[in-house]
Nucleic acid binder design. Structure first.
Lengths: 144, 144
DNA sequence: ATATCTGCAAATTGTTTGCTGACGA
DNA sequence: TCGTCAGCAAACAATTTGCAGATAT
């Protein structure tokens, strides 16, 4: 997702909630979009520090939660004891991850079959699904 | 999984690690097997309290981690801020969950297509997968 | 006998919250 | 102007850990 698209989404969301697009939120959004990868709150703080962008931990956490709500970020748990974020897919459902238990490498899994299989399974249970989290744990080619 | 099977697995695992099958670990295993459902560490402590089984929180956490390693329990994160456990499936891959975002109801999703699709996707990335976690978030028939 | 265990309380980790002066519309 | 915000420090919840005496083999 490019910065412009993201900013539109965020502004729309904030406006709807009666909130402001402050300079801190903008700085955070820029840093977040700049990252092409998964990141934790701490990693983002480090990146910001190295870019001389100064925002408090509390503000970052508050902003990340908003970005998730705004649909700009998605959140995942790789079993490492803290949340991971990544820029959300622009269209349709999100994607899964394969995590190497040895070296912690993370690879994204995208396949149209995923969404279609999931919605079939959910319909069977009478659920209406709007997102999923899929983590596959194993060993990558280097570690097995 | 019945108690006997579980105890075998646990004893094997503990022996391999040079650890003991103590009375606390046995009490915990019994309570865990008794539960037919998902549970958190706190819920298990409550159940044990109501059964007059007395084990400290620290010992429970240590034992749960071993049971996961032994393959008797599996661990999942439903986004509620704490881990959930459930007795692991005896054969082949585990299963997923659909979680209602409104009422927190959790329904299990089992389908042979899951494992086969996942192993296909992983092979494509050169990974060898041994477990997965799948959470589908949405609204159940009562809440939508 | 000896290494592993338990329970306790204290420590850690990741994250959230209350407050006060600063900021955005 | 007036409500929202940022930063700080304190609060929190879930989980982990160090230690000293109890226990398993």
């Amino acid at each position: 997702m490019d910065y412009e698209t993201a900013e539109q989404k965020v502004k729309l969301f904030l406006a709807k909630e009666g909130k402001f697009f402050t300079r801190e939120r903008k700085k955070i959004l820029q840093e977040v979009i700049k990252t092409g990868d998964h990141f934790s709150a701490d990693e983002m703080l480090l990146q910001m520090k190295s870019d001389n962008v100064d925002v408090s931990r509390a503000t970052l956490y508050r902003a990340l939660a908003q970005l998730v709500q705004a649909g700009v970020l998605s959140e995942a748990d790789f079993g490492h004891g803290h949340a991971h974020y990544e820029v959300a897919d622009e269209e349709e459902g999100n994607h899964g991850h394969i995590i190497c238990k040895k070296c912690n490498k993370v690879v994204e899994i995208r396949d149209p079959e995923l969404a279609s299989l999931f919605s079939r399974l959910c319909a069977r249970e009478g659920f209406e699904v709007d997102s999923f989290q899929l983590q596959l744990f194993g060993h990558c080619s280097d570690c097995k």
